[in-house]
Design a protein around this nucleic acid. Structure first.
Length: 243
DNA sequence: GCTAATGTTATCGC
DNA sequence: GGCGATAACATTAG
C-alpha cells in the first residue's frame, strides 16, 4: 500500500483522533501488548518515511504497512484487525502491518532530516551519507530508507526517468550537479505523488513505472531487477545516462 | 485461479 | 561475526 506520501495522507485523515482517549484496544497477534493503550490519550500522529507513528504521553506505537497493509477509519473489514483502537466516538483499524512499541524519545530514534517529505530534509547530509558508500548505485540509493526515507519503487522509477539517470549508475561517478538534480526531483516528485494520489490520478501520470515504452522517444523500456534489493526498474537505454 | 506487486525482517550458508 | 542470498509474511487487483 504505502510509500511516504500515502502515509502523509493517512496522517491527515486521522487528525480527528488527536486528543481522543483510547477506551479499548486489541491486537490479533501477540506483537503488541494492547493493555498499555487503554485510557491513554493520543497526543499526536507523526511519520518518518513509511513509518506511521501514534504518539501517547509516555510512548509511541510504530506502524509499518509493508506491501499490503491497509487501514479503516470509523469502519472495519470482516477480518480481525492487527491493531484496533476504540474511541468514545469512532474507531481506527490497521491490517497486515507490523507493530512496534517505542519507549525512547522519537528524536533519539529518528533522523527527521532523512525523510524526503519532512520539512527538515537535508540534502547536504544525504550527499555526505552517499559519499561514504563508494559502490552505491542510484537505484539502491533511492531505495535506502536511511538515505531517502519514504521512497519506494514507484518514486524510484519515476525519479530516475525524470532526471534521466540509468538505475545502475554509480553515484560516485555522477557529477555533483546531477546528484543534486536527482535529490531535488525525489523531493519534488514525492509531493507530486501526494497530490496525484489525493486526486486519484496517480497511475495515470506514471511515465516509467510499469510502462512499456519511453514517452520521450518511443523505444521499449527495459525492465530489469536492479541493485541489491533486486526490485524492478523500468528504464530507457537511450535517454537515461549510465554514469 | 494465478500472478505480481507501493516492503521489511529473519534466517541460512559461506 | 559479517556478508549476501533467500525465505517468509500478507493482500488483492487484474
Amino acid at each position: 500500500m504505502p510509500e511516504g506520501p500515502s502515509i502523509l495522507i493517512l496522517k491527515e485523515k486521522v487528525q480527528q483522533f488527536i486528543g481522543e482517549k483510547v477506551i479499548a484496544a486489541t491486537c490479533n497477534n501477540d506483537t503488541l501488548d494492547t493493555e498499555i493503550l487503554t485510557d491513554q490519550t493520543i497526543t499526536a500522529f507523526k511519520s518518518w518515511g513509511k513509518h506511521f507513528l501514534i504518539c501517547f504521553p509516555q510512548f509511541t506505537i510504530r506502524i509499518h504497512m509493508m506491501m499490503f497493509g491497509t487501514y479503516r477509519i470509523n469502519s472495519h473489514t470482516e477480518k480481525p484487525p492487527r491493531l484496533h483502537l476504540q474511541f468514545e466516538d469512532g474507531e481506527l483499524n490497521f491490517y497486515a502491518c507490523l507493530l512496534q512499541l517505542i519507549e525512547e524519545p522519537l528524536d533519539k530514534v529518528y533522523d527527521w532530516s532523512a525523510d524526503v517529505m519532512n520539512p527538515e530534509w537535508d540534502t547536504k547530509k544525504a550527499i555526505k551519507k552517499m559519499k561514504a558508500l563508494p559502490n552505491l548505485l542510484a537505484c539502491d540509493a533511492l531505495m535506502d530508507q536511511q538515505l531517502f526515507s519514504g521512497v519506494g519503487n514507484i518514486i524510484k522509477n519515476e525519479v530516475l526517468f525524470r532526471s534521466r539517470i540509468h538505475p545502475e549508475s554509480l553515484i560516485a561517478a555522477m557529477p555533483s550537479k546531477k546528484v543534486k538534480e536527482m535529490i531535488n526531483e525525489t523531493i519534488r516528485y514525492s509531493f507530486e505523488f501526494l497530490q496525484q494520489k489525493k486526486k486519484g490520478t496517480l497511475k495515470r501520470h506514471w511515465q516509467a513505472y510499469h510502462k512499456k515504452e519511453c514517452p520521450r522517444n518511443h523505444v521499449p523500456f527495459i525492465r530489469k531487477d536492479t541493485g541489491k534489493s533486486r526490485r524492478a526498474s523500468f528504464y530507457c537505454e537511450l535517454c537515461q545516462v549510465k554514469y
